[in-house]
Design a protein around this nucleic acid. Structure first.
Lengths: 228, 228
DNA sequence: ATTTTTGTTTAGTTGGGGCTAAACTGTGTC
DNA sequence: GACACAGTTTAGCCCCAACTAAACAAAAAT
């Protein structure tokens, strides 16, 4: 009964809304109209209109004046888009020499046009990878996604060793800067000092050495404890 | 003055219309409303509407009740789409193991979504190829395309040797059959007999051997003289 | 407990790109 | 020259997905 409606192909817009709602409601709560609007760069009334259509087709649930959440069906559709996006990003960097700061835009357009078949072929060609170039987990074709508990570098315990697992931005300028600094997934990091009042964080990279970065960036660098 | 209008991105539909008009008017003449309609699977009035928009933006010229032709600007836009399509088809077959009978549909959707950048990267990865998997010439980024004079196998002189250069269909069933028969670009062929009244053609393949094919297919197989 | 502010929704409009039904043209036939 | 017919165009409609302006709810401030 979950698939009462057939697999009607979704429009480009619908796919974008579902992805946005997925990201905005990932930490449990509701995605609000204005958050969706600003993420998609449209006016709030446009979002209200789309919310009506999406909840009519059963992809989201809407609590007026509070926000929306994905239904199971909607979450699956969103995860399918996220899989597409991340496989494409990885394929473009690995096989067509894109830089990790340039793939987002290209993948953003392609994800709406390619077939599941192509995505699966790309994934196979890459050895069914689990992470995209920014360290974000790639959902499986069945819609399962790894839910790792990661801690922003801004908040990790000084002295302990962590692995930088994921860089949580698609902004080309930030990504370029971080790559220059060697702050890429897989690196081992230890925080050696932190200035008060949201000041910069001093850290040691292995391999690499000393770095000082601002809090804004330190919030984007998601880490995991490695030593016990 | 040819580029009075900026490089406004064209819609998916507009791109499809330009491609269709290019193909239909390639042998000199006008593309008619109903030919465009049946090629794009839309109703004739829809074509009339689009013709208005395209000629308003200067991409085509319209002679009422006669048909349309591409302007220079329109031809360039069409050739850009054809380049995209053919590079994609070749990339998918060469790098992602698609069969030559399955690439068309995928390329058809992707060609509207990818950047010129990606197409050029794919072309570079393939060594700037000149022909797609069906032997059709790939336009250059500047919009130049090879205009070879090819003769349908149905019409070639018996006894002489030709090279099969291009297979002029995208129909998966026909393509599959032709591949099974070894009728792929690059093969050397000699016609050894032809039945009257549009009957089948008997030919020898090198390498391969004897084949008998109907006239319908023989019209799709485009050949070039090889011996002097 | 009102009032103000902020955020959301409804109402009404626009443009792209389809559609059907009806009017019109051009061509070929008697 | 008149007519029939095939093909083209116009008229009028629909859906999607955006927009602005205005009405409405909820939360914050007085």
């Amino acid at each position: 009964m979950s698939a009462l409606l057939a697999d009607v192909p979704l429009s480009r817009s619908v796919e974008d809304y579902l992805k946005a709602i997925y990201h905005l409601s990932s930490q449990g709560g509701f995605a609000t109209t204005s958050d969706i609007a600003s993420m998609l760069m449209v006016a709030p009334p446009s979002v209200s209109g789309m919310i009506r259509r999406l909840s009519d087709t059963g992809l989201i649930e809407h609590v007026p004046y509070r926000g929306v959440q994905l239904t199971n069906q909607g979450r699956l559709a969103a995860l399918r888009m996220i899989r597409r996006h991340r496989v494409l990003e990885l394929y473009l960097t690995e096989r067509l020499d894109y830089d990790w700061d340039g793939v987002h835009e290209e993948a953003e357009r392609m994800e709406h046009a390619v077939s599941d078949e192509l995505i699966d072929r790309m994934a196979r060609a890459l050895g069914n990878p689990r992470y995209d170039p920014h360290g974000a987990p790639i959902p499986t074709p069945a819609g399962e996604i790894e839910e790792a508990v990661l801690i922003p570098l801004a908040d990790i315990d000084p002295g302990l060793t962590y692995e930088l697992r994921q860089v949580d931005t698609e902004d080309p300028a930030r990504l370029r800067y971080l790559a220059e600094q060697g702050l890429v997934p897989g690196k081992a990091v230890t925080v050696t000092g932190r200035q008060p009042f949201n000041g910069p964080v001093t850290l040691t990279l292995q391999p690499g050495g000393e770095r000082v970065i601002g809090r804004e960036l330190a919030l984007l660098l998601l880490c995991r404890r490695t030593d016990v």
